[in-house]
């Protein structure tokens, strides 16, 4: 088995270990704790008064625009990682540096545009 897959199989084992830990803790907890549900106990907590309105209240998701912003930026920055490992290799040097500034410039313009549009003010 190549080293590459061996590494990730150990990572997989850790994940299994984590799942076992969680399962053991929850099972242990079930054996230790009392169970005495009442109707009042199962009510949604709202500062002591009976809950008002729907459970999943409608809220205005004002984060929408920069959720969008985030997706664009994050996808861009993911491509930085493979590029970053080779950009200084022999024969790349100056060309990749110019590319980098073009890339950073695009990101900066995007941020500036969002700023001008008022996406980055919250009042």
């Amino acid at each position: 088995m190549p080293d590459y897959f061996h590494g990730y199989s150990v990572v997989g084992l850790v994940a299994v270990l984590g799942a076992v830990f969680v399962a053991a803790a929850f099972t242990g907890g079930r054996l230790l704790r009392p169970v005495a549900p009442t109707r009042e106990k199962m009510l949604t907590y709202e500062c002591g008064v009976d809950p008002v309105g729907d459970d999943w209240a409608h809220t205005q998701v004002r984060y929408y625009v920069y959720a969008f912003l985030y997706v664009i930026f994050a996808i861009d920055s993911i491509f930085l990682f493979p590029w970053a490992t080779i950009f200084a290799a022999v024969g790349f040097g100056a060309a990749t540096l110019v590319e980098m500034f073009i890339f950073l410039g695009l990101l900066a313009i995007g941020l500036l545009y969002a700023y001008k549009k008022g996406v980055l003010t919250w009042t």
Partner: peptide
């Protein structure tokens, strides 16, 4: 919202170290 806002600087700062070390 906070996850989205701070994931980006986290990624970019880490990318800087990757660039330095290759």
């Amino acid at each position: 919202a906070q996850l989205m806002a701070y994931e980006l600087p986290l990624l970019l700062a880490a990318a800087s170290v990757v660039m330095a070390s290759g």
